[in-house]
Write a protein that binds this DNA or RNA. Structure first.
Lengths: 152, 152
DNA sequence: CCGTATCCATTCCGATACTG
DNA sequence: CAGTATCGGAATGGATACGG
């Protein structure tokens, strides 16, 4: 049954995001796409994942709207997977994951990959949460509320 | 070599983060912790997850250093799970996931839960990636490089 | 109340083989 | 090159029963 959604994904956007791209491979695939990877074989080589798994993930990511399938840019007969706007917008998610990992999961001298901005070759500003008025916010400074539809 | 890690967690911080907290429940547990949940039964009720699973996840999250176990604040005989600094710092990750989900995974009128800042009751500023000099950055404005240990 | 132990179903993954 | 088909094994999840 291609039924709606699973029990707990109903109204929490975090849960839905996890359900859409929160599996073990999807975010890695998207991360590679941020590095310019577009071809099946390149994903496969970069990730070392089995082809059937990769095919399956790519397929659902296209269904979800993270990737579009387009013609090869080099004129070859094959397809390319290119990020949609929706896909590009997961950038903050993977960058915040990257920064958290860098900070807490590596020993100081351990070899790692880092992200640099093209313009200056500098590391990025740490991602943080701000209020609409620009105040930095921690978990304790926020609360969740339920919004049922808007009548304006 | 000298790589004793699991295959894909090698040197990408994103991969390590995914391995540490990227499973189906951990981020939901942490999200609940941001809402002030600290007790086993509260997590269980909030998430609707089986007790053995919850116990298992909580255990690994403690091992990973996201939670500390402390005495109950109300003087009862039981433990509480309280976020460490490392745990609190996953806040940007779940907020960026939340915002992406809100934006792309909900129909406009669908009921959802949203995060508001306590001080003003406003929605948060969208999380974005900036260079160290304050320029907004997209995926195409960055590149990855490998850093092997020491320079200077 | 807070877990642990057990059992079972399901899903996920990887290797391999095969097709256009 | 870009997948699909199939299979076995591993990991994950859920329900329930039990113990501190």
């Amino acid at each position: 049954m291609a039924e709606a959604d699973s029990p707990h994904s109903n109204e929490c956007p975090v849960a839905r995001t996890l359900e859409a791209i929160g599996d073990r491979w999807s975010l890695m695939i998207i991360r590679d796409a941020f590095d310019g990877i577009r071809r099946f074989s390149e994903f496969q080589k970069s990730l070392g994942v089995a082809k059937n798994i990769l095919a399956s993930r790519l397929k659902t990511l296209v269904e979800v709207g993270v990737f579009d399938i387009g013609p090869a840019s080099d004129g070859s007969a094959y397809k390319e997977y290119v990020l949609t706007e929706k896909g590009r917008e997961v950038f903050p998610i993977v960058v915040s994951m990257r920064q958290w990992g860098e900070r807490y999961l590596f020993k100081p001298q351990e070899t790692r990959s880092v992200l640099l901005d093209n313009a200056r070759g500098q590391t990025l500003m740490p991602i943080a949460v701000f209020s609409s008025s620009g105040q930095p916010l921690g978990p304790a400074d926020c609360h969740r509320v339920r919004i049922s539809a808007q009548t304006s």
